[in-house]
Design a protein around this nucleic acid. Structure first.
Lengths: 128, 128
DNA sequence: TGCTTGTTACGAATACCTTCGTACATTTGA
DNA sequence: TCAAATGTACGAAGGTATTCGTAACAAGCA
């Protein structure tokens, strides 16, 4: 019965992405990962991870010399939260345009398209 | 050949929503509209609209005593920009989950569902 | 004329985000 | 043993977003 009002910032999101992928990691590894596509100082990453730990966005435990960090929040929860916010703030609550725009402008595999169609079908039938 | 790097903040978005709906309005009217669902000072709204005018997010012209403001950017452009940012930052570029989540959690009319299906169909056929 | 009202312009306070430097602690290997 | 290497904690600077108070100005009217 938690589900606090988590609101990751952009920088926090980048770190969460790494942790969601690696499941767990030390500051060193996260820093290395992020360094692959942008210049960022080690202590900058460290500081963020400390802040995020304070907020509950990350969990951590001692692991020898350094700490081992883990995500403190599920990816799906964050995705839904952002989606909700965006729908309210720029789509005024209507999902239709967003769906069309996403389908129109971004790659979707044939299998995924099929799944979407099936999902719509089941939705329509459920409403009879 | 403009299309600058507009990046409305949350507060700016609220004002844009009003302007997109009313087409044009004075500070007074925008303030009244926003006051309907949150407490906000008149000069706060004024200040934002001045800032936004400076950024090109709003256009304005003298209209007797006060200024008449108009959106300086299309709603669709902002929507696509936000969608793009969200896909990058929290969905890692995959539109599929976003579409499913949007369809699953938000209302869509039968007609809209039909349109989405048709759109997918045409997409699939185009790839033969 | 001079007061009230509606409006604009601007400065400033506060809060938060991002970034990093520096100090301190712990481990380790020569 | 003790210096280098590896980490953590923390403070602080600089930027942006948000909010509003106050001054100034123009128009209208008593």
């Amino acid at each position: 019965m938690k589900e606090k009002n988590y609101n990751p910032t952009d920088a926090e999101l980048e770190i969460l992405q790494v942790l969601w992928e690696l499941k767990e990691a030390r500051v060193k590894e996260v820093h290395e990962k992020l360094s692959q596509h942008k210049a960022v100082g080690y202590t900058t990453v460290l500081k963020f991870m400390q802040i995020m730990h304070g907020k509950g966005l990350l969990l951590r435990e001692p692991g020898g010399k350094s700490h081992i960090y883990r995500p403190g929040i599920r990816k799906e929860q964050v995705q839904e939260k952002f989606l909700d916010k965006m729908l309210q703030s720029v789509y005024k609550g209507s999902a239709f345009k967003l769906v069309m725009s996403a389908l129109g402008n971004y790659k979707t595999s044939p299998d995924e398209l099929e799944q979407i169609k099936k999902f719509i079908q089941s939705k329509e039938e459920g409403h009879e």
